[in-house]
Design a protein around this nucleic acid. Structure first.
Length: 111
DNA sequence: CACATGACGAGGG
DNA sequence: ACCCTCGCCATGT
């Protein structure tokens, strides 16, 4: 597996339940700042074999991006099942749920 | 090598 | 805030 693809797989695998990351954010961390579309490709090709939490990846606006209605529905339900609130326009509040890998684990252990 | 693909994203109207 | 266009780029064929 090529480095970029491998990085993307690792990053996506590391997203905790109840949090999300954006395509662009993942691409940047994986070493290709403008490679958001490559993240999409990785999701298509590697999701099954690597059992990726593909549903935790959304677009820069915080919205679920899948066009197919049924798949879109599945993603929304998977996210809600993890406690994430998805509003009526299929959007999630990034300030609340976006995962930033370098930060200290939140909530519980803050002073 | 040329070209198509794609669950994107930034910017402008 | 919505809609569209255009640039983007790792891979596969």
């Amino acid at each position: 597996m090529k480095p970029f693809t491998e990085n993307v797989v690792k990053i996506i695998s590391s997203i905790p339940a109840g949090r999300v990351m954006t395509y662009g954010q993942i691409a940047k961390l994986a070493g290709s700042p403008r490679g958001a579309r490559q993240v999409v490709r990785v999701l298509h090709t590697m999701s099954q074999a690597h059992q990726l939490p593909w549903h935790r990846v959304i677009n820069s606006k915080g919205a679920i991006s899948i066009k197919d209605d049924q798949q879109n529905d599945i993603q929304r339900k998977l996210l809600q099942k993890e406690g994430i609130i998805v509003d009526t326009s299929n959007t999630i509040d990034l300030n609340t749920y976006q995962h930033h890998p370098n930060e200290i684990d939140d909530d519980v252990n803050l002073i």
